[in-house]
């Protein structure tokens, strides 16, 4: 079984920044992602308690390396200053590369 190398971008951010992240993804023609609500502690204090709007989400996207640079750059430029947000990239292997353009 052959596994192909692609990148997994994981963005942990406040729930109100999720829309911005997904907008950036779709701008780069990436439509597939997985997101889930998470809790945690960080620079902006305990997150995930209380009001729904103050929860955190984790967005996971698999993409080819060529797109990664632009997407990460745009997220960093537009969202880092104003939102609670952390992102990181990992190498993952997938079976069907054509699913992740």
């Amino acid at each position: 079984m052959k596994l192909y190398d692609v990148k997994l971008l994981t963005v942990t951010c406040e729930i109100l920044a999720q829309k911005n992240v997904i907008d950036i993804l779709s701008k780069h023609k990436i439509t597939g992602y997985t997101s889930y609500e998470v809790e945690g502690n960080g620079a902006r204090g305990l997150r995930g308690q209380g009001l729904k709007n103050e929860k955190n989400v984790k967005v996971e996207v698999i993409m080819q390396e060529e797109k990664l640079q632009d997407v990460v750059e745009e997220i960093a430029r537009t969202l880092f200053t104003n939102f609670a947000i952390v992102l990181y990239v990992t190498n993952v292997g997938v079976l069907r590369t054509e699913k992740f353009v």
């Binding site: 009001l51 709007n53 103050e54 104003n82």
Partner: peptide, 22 residues
């Protein structure tokens, strides 16, 4: 407003600190 305000303002005026208005 403390339920609607953050949802609207976080997008429209993201530079404002939500900790102040909430």
């Amino acid at each position: 407003s403390f339920i609607a305000a953050p949802a609207v303002l976080r997008h429209a005026i993201p530079q404002a600190k939500p900790s102040l208005y909430i």
